[in-house]
Design a protein around this nucleic acid. Structure first.
Length: 396
RNA sequence: GCCCCCAUCGUCUAGUGGCCUAGGACACCACCCUUUCAAGGUGGCGGCACGGGUUCGAAUCCCGUUGGGGGUGCCA
């Protein structure tokens, strides 16, 4: 949550101009018209930073001339970091870096420092990739008369399976995307907190209030952490199962009630889904998996999957389908008696219920895997169940 | 190249000199339960990168090596 802003650096140019003017007036910055090529010509080393050529040329402002900050030639800059201690940087190794572009716009680093001073920022929390820029920021801070520099906390980066920093281009980093895939915000939040830190005790899945009360930046690890989708999924499954049934139904709505569902919206039956919900809830890892557990209820025909069909429709399948259909014409339409009836069919063929239910399951739901069968049949109703059993029998 | 950061099971972590024959979670394996699949239960596999110190004692402190990551823009 936040309590002010947002601010736009594009609207605060006057502040940055004033800061640049101060640096010039104090002799801490100078204009420079060097290009990359002219620098390389002088140093002959593409790895070397700016050589300070324009330091004393006393160039004035002109289009195309950048403003460079004059870094100290000696001494060291110490950064106070809650997570990393007190890293020290030799000033001598810092090149005179650009703070204002040739077109007059401030570079992010300058804008950032000016904003932080003006907003009286005392603690900066950011990714560790910013650590090497920190001495530059502090030097600018001092040069601008900002007072005591802030305390820093450089948190570890998150890495992918190749242990590279997660990047927008290469990796899936947008939270919206995870939300769209059916991850719950509290699950994501809880999982993220376990990266580089751990709640007290031997539990990782904890209420947010516990995290609020016990989290300390000083306890954060400094090593990069791998973002493990499998573990996130495990957290998400636990959070889904912890939901009250009506909360689960609510949360599932975007995947089942709208146009995104794999069946015509008008065919969706909220009552049937509510009845099925507890059975689905303990089986899914993400909300996006919900539709495939209930689609057989809202589609005209069973959504037969070939692999499932081939696996289940062999051996005594034909006989089982016939006998199940016969028994189901007159059976009480309750999960319990549907189960007993099919169990009896299976026993005639020397099959355990686990085996006997397979052809029926595939005929009716289309897949070998799904919610408990007899509860599903009970909801689907006698008419549609019988129709699907016969359709499957014909297809054999 | 140069600078900086980092290093406990495959992964995320607990551990802040003796409580560690290193604990938990995810993953994996086995078994139990069971109408499929899950969920749940029980058990198992598996780690202090390496080498030197310091100390009565080191996963914990120091140095080095190796390995990994980040930075090095008139990007943010």
């Amino acid at each position: 949550d936040w309590d002010e802003g947002p601010y736009f650096q594009s609207e605060r140019g006057a502040l940055y101009d004033a800061a640049a003017a101060k640096l010039i007036a104090d002799g801490q910055a100078y204009y420079c018209d060097c290009t990359r090529d002219s620098l390389l010509l002088r140093t002959g080393d593409p790895n070397r930073g700016y050589d300070g050529y324009c330091r004393d040329r006393d160039l004035g402002v002109a289009p195309g001339r950048a403003l460079r900050f004059r870094t100290p030639d000696a001494g060291a800059t110490t950064v106070v970091d809650l997570i990393r201690g007190r890293p020290e940087f030799e000033n001598e190794l810092l090149e005179d870096f650009v703070v204002v572009r040739g077109d007059g716009r401030a570079i992010f680093l300058l804008a950032n420092v000016v904003d932080d001073i003006e907003m009286r920022i005392s603690l900066v929390i950011r990714g560790e990739e910013h650590l090497p820029n920190t001495p530059k920021a502090q030097l600018l801070w001092q040069a601008l008369g900002g007072g005591d520099p802030p305390t820093w906390a450089h948190v570890p980066v998150l890495v992918n399976e190749k242990r590279q920093k997660l990047s927008k281009r290469r990796d899936k980093v947008a939270l919206e995307q995870y939300r769209d895939e059916g991850y719950l915000a509290p699950a994501m939040r809880n999982y993220l907190m376990t990266l580089g830190w751990a709640p007290p005790g031997d539990v990782e899945i904890v209420p947010w209030t516990v995290i609020e009360e016990t989290f300390r930046l000083e306890d954060v690890n400094s090593a990069p952490a791998y973002f493990d989708l499998k573990k996130l999924a495990a957290f998400n499954g636990e959070y889904i199962r912890a939901l009250a049934v009506d909360e689960f139904v609510d949360a599932s709505r975007p995947w089942i009630a709208g146009g995104a569902a794999p069946w015509p919206p008008e065919r969706f039956d909220p009552v049937a889904f509510a009845a099925m919900a507890p059975l689905v809830q303990e089986r899914v890892t993400t909300l996006a998996e919900v539709p495939r557990y209930v689609d057989f209820l809202f589609l005209d025909d069973a959504p037969i999957e070939t692999a499932s069909w081939d696996k289940a429709m062999k051996g005594d399948a034909a006989a089982i389908l016939d006998e199940a259909a016969a028994a189901y014409e007159t059976a009480d339409w309750t999960a319990e008696s549907l189960k007993e009836a099919l169990d009896a069919v299976g026993q005639r063929h020397g099959l355990k219920l686990a085996k006997a239910q397979a052809p029926v399951r595939v005929a009716v739901t289309g897949r070998t895997v799904g919610p408990p069968l007899f509860e599903s049949l009970a909801l689907l109703g006698r008419e549609r169940t019988l129709a699907r059993l016969r359709a499957a029998r014909e297809r054999l």
